[in-house]
Design a protein around this nucleic acid. Structure first.
Lengths: 141, 141
DNA sequence: CCTTGAGCTTCCAGTGACTGGAAGCCCTAT
DNA sequence: ATAGGGCTTCCAGTCACTGGAAGCTCAAGG
């Protein structure tokens, strides 16, 4: 197969496939005219990479998963460890995004969104403490 | 103030502050020796940027927010629009991550994580359909 | 046989938002 | 005079591609 066909069948664009070759994730052969020639196993590998990437694994994670996949002496614990590490990274990201979401959605709700300049979003960004009534001077530090 | 002091007071590292100057987010003055000189307003701006970045706004988003902040003729609707767009981007990311999390956590649960090579995580990545019992011989190809 | 167009090749540059490091100037203290 | 720390600039690297230019190859049509 040429690169166009693997691209279509694996769902990975030609550019990316070339990049994957560059960084040693796949090693297609070459035919006489210099074109890359992919076998079914290459296609399989690329599809594997596509799915791993879709699950958010980094390229290095994919590389490790792929080498475990091809290693018949692997222990599933190794795979699980990689996956668990990634899972916890995902959880961290979700938590971080949810914290942002929390703050931001409150601010958005509080903003009138009209033609006047007053804006609690900008007020917050400029350093005002949210929900802080200007009572008797001494506010939080 | 020199860069070190603003860095400490704004919580933004010197490198990043220089970068922000490069891309035109702040314009500190220069003293005779070539050192950057920051005023309180610069510090304020940097703190603003720090908070906006912490909420996940892109640099361009920050630039827009900052220019609205400094624009007395702004309409809060403009600010709200930026924030809402960002909020929806955050929601998209959260959804995407949660979808990954969902799949991945099922796979991790299903993996024994022992010293044997059998691994549902790799099986899934290699293209097997999840929950597909290999009943009477005819398995997936 | 020639042309045309698609498909392939390589290489270089850019993305976002920094971050690290090198080389060198400035300032203060000893 | 020297040592150090802080400041300056510029260049390169990160991550995972993506776009584009210049040029070769191949199959089909005239």
């Amino acid at each position: 197969m040429n690169i166009g066909e693997v691209a279509e069948r694996s769902g990975i664009p030609p550019k990316t496939i070339r990049y994957y070759e560059d960084i040693g994730l796949v090693r297609p052969q070459r035919s006489g005219n210099g074109y890359r020639t992919f076998r079914e196993t290459d296609l399989h590998k690329l599809a594997f990479l596509g799915r791993a990437r879709a699950l958010g694994f980094s390229i290095e994670g994919c590389r490790n998963l792929l080498s475990l996949y091809e290693d018949e002496t692997r222990e599933s614990a190794q795979v699980k460890a990689i996956a668990e590490e990634h899972l916890s990274a995902i959880d961290d990201k979700i938590a971080q995004l949810q914290a942002m979401r929390e703050t931001l959605s409150h601010l958005v709700e509080a903003c009138h969104g009209d033609h006047r300049p007053d804006c609690p979003i900008l007020k917050d960004l400029s350093g005002a403490l949210a929900g802080c009534k200007p009572t008797t001077g001494r506010s939080a530090d």
